[in-house]
């Protein structure tokens, strides 16, 4: 009797482990599928020009060759990088600040017309980006701003858009009024309250806003394609597009293009590694609170 039970238990255990192993296999295969573009980007960036044009196409290099990197890193890419750094830095500093300011106003200060102002702000979510960008291009053109980086930075001083202000307000609403009341009794003015009390308390959402702005600006190519027509002001996204991919671009070895791609990817990897938890929480809560 005992022997039979023992065998049954063993069988059950084997079946359970097989299920786990099969599941792991499927999940790993899926991961491989999702990682394919990144694997290809990395492996083909270290191929020699000989390897990269071999038919049938190689997935892994026969020998490591870093000439792609040295060739990719030229004066042009440095100029694109500099423009990107300027645009991203200005946006990443000023959007969270002005966003905090507006979020504070909507969440914690009572004034007539607040509800209407907030609905007006939210209504802008429905306006498709391109519907505003083309008339704005015309305005910037007449102001002479299309010959500069300003079209990519000027909005940073105005709150950073409805969505980020909305999330900021939602978060700040959770801060108890008693804290602000106490500060006001102590004679703190709005500016002091904002920087000394709101900023530290709202740190998580301020950081998340900054990280999101960084990623959005760093990856942006749509607005840059519309506003930036002068090569001097190309950011990495549009610069590399015109250099490698656009019709009429001179043909540049694929390993050089891949190497440039890896260089462009590095800041995103760093940001993701540093702020992984906040980013994933951010994606998740944005879906829950609509």
């Amino acid at each position: 009797m005992d022997a039979v039970n023992e065998r049954r238990r063993k069988m059950r255990k084997i079946r359970r482990t097989t299920v786990v192993v099969v599941r792991h296999c499927i999940i790993s295969l899926l991961a491989l599928f999702f990682l394919l573009p990144i694997i290809v980007l990395l492996t083909r960036s270290v191929m020699s020009p000989d390897d990269i044009y071999r038919v049938p196409t190689l997935l892994f290099p026969t020998k490591l060759d870093f000439s792609g990197y040295t060739e990719a890193f030229d004066a042009q890419i440095l100029s694109y990088l500099l423009n990107t750094v300027i645009v991203v830095a200005v946006n990443t500093v000023f959007v969270p600040l002005t966003c905090l300011m507006c979020g504070y106003g909507f969440a914690k200060v009572r004034f007539p017309g607040r509800g209407i102002a907030f609905s007006l702000l939210l209504s802008t979510i429905m306006i498709p980006g391109i519907a505003m960008q083309i008339p704005l291009y015309i305005v910037y053109y007449h102001l002479g701003l299309t010959d500069s980086l300003w079209p990519l930075m000027i909005t940073a001083f105005f709150g950073g858009g409805a969505m980020s202000i909305f999330f900021m307000r939602q978060y700040l609403k959770g801060i108890p009024d008693s804290i602000l009341e106490a500060a006001r009794v102590d004679g703190a003015n709005a500016l002091v309250i904002m920087f000394k009390i709101m900023l530290p308390l709202a740190r998580p959402v301020v950081v998340l806003t900054a990280v999101n702005v960084f990623i959005g600006q760093y990856n942006d190519y749509g607005t840059a394609l519309i506003y930036i027509w002068n090569e001097k002001f190309y950011t990495l996204s549009v610069g590399l597009y015109y250099k490698y991919l656009a019709p009429g671009a001179e043909s540049i070895d694929a390993n050089v293009q891949y190497a440039a791609g890896v260089l462009v990817m590095v800041p995103m990897v760093v940001i993701f590694a540093l702020f992984q938890k906040q980013l994933i929480n951010g994606i998740v809560t944005s879906g829950m609170k609509l």
Partner: peptide
């Protein structure tokens, strides 16, 4: 992760 690839990178790939 593929969502984090800058669009110009994925375009190259």
């Amino acid at each position: 992760l593929p969502n984090l690839l800058p669009p110009v990178c994925s375009a190259i790939v």
